[in-house]
Design a protein around this nucleic acid. Structure first.
Ligand SMILES: [Mn+2]
Ligand SMILES: [Mn+2]
Ligand SMILES: [Zn+2]
Ligand SMILES: [Zn+2]
Lengths: 138, 138
DNA sequence: GACTTGACTTAGACATTGTCCAATGTAGGA
DNA sequence: TCCTACATTGGACAATGTCTAAGTCAAGTC
């Protein structure tokens, strides 16, 4: 995460306690927190941090390409710090657990030009759904 | 759509003016309306229809498998009457236009078991993103 | 170290999307 | 025609997200 903080400093960011805390929360593998979850964890480290600052900071990180927005369910957006390695997601339909996955092949190649309707297609998101081991056992 | 109304009658649905109007609105190809858009179009045909009824009816149609929920953007859910032909979506990143597409191949086969984390994977959603012809020209 | 300034943070109002409920209405069978 | 279980309604409430005015502070300058 200090990598991230360094990059942000290089981009002219003022290093505030709030931004440091948000960056700390957004660290690790398979991390896909909602804004309110980020806020709750940030408050544990810095009680006076506001919801508005969390939303602002997340939005800025997304604009900078340091964090991805993921919408695996129809509720809140989730924020994914694993922005520098392209990947897709595997979601448990029962408990919502999310794993990063790396399918083989290139789904873009599977969309023939006759199915492109003249669009310039630049990106593809794949969401696999199923049951995680815990939920399948229950 | 009278097909749909027949199926619903067969399932024991009471045929109300409200349900008929929602079914009428949800007709056609490449239709992906939000609940409020459905409501606005329904009101044009039946001014006294309430938001609650539109939400109730859409929820029931989804439960019955007659309509799909689609979340191509991070805003409102969209309702897709094309539930009987599996397909994916192509979305314009600029104006939000949505087309139904039918990629070749089977993306499920592209997820090796080493990338399944013990999940029972049953479904996959693919969303292609790019620019529609109009937005690319502008 | 003190000063300055524009970027940053905050609380809370407001907006959008969706859910829930008690009261009222009605489709369809008896 | 009557009955009643099912359906609809309006509005309160909830969850998520946006915006703004006022106060705060990081970091450059002296
Ligand atoms: Mn991820
Ligand atoms: Mn569709
Ligand atoms: Zn699970
Ligand atoms: Zn477009």
């Amino acid at each position: 995460m200090s990598d991230l903080l360094e990059r942000l400093r290089g981009r002219g960011w003022r290093m505030t306690a709030q931004r440091r805390v948000v960056a700390e929360v957004l660290d690790g593998e398979h991390v896909h927190l909602t804004a309110d979850e980020v806020h709750a964890r940030a408050v544990a480290k810095l009680p006076e941090i506001s919801r508005a600052t969390v939303y602002n900071t997340l939005g800025e990180l997304v604009s900078l390409g340091e964090v991805l927005e993921v919408t695996t369910d129809k509720r809140a957006k989730r924020y994914d710090p694993n922005a520098h390695r392209p990947h897709h997601h595997l979601v448990c339909a029962h408990c919502g657990a999310i794993r990063d996955v790396h399918p083989t092949g290139n789904p873009l190649a599977d969309l023939p030009s006759s199915e492109r309707f003249g669009f310039t297609v630049s990106d593809v998101e794949v969401t696999y759904r199923g049951l995680c081991p815990d939920c399948a056992a229950a």
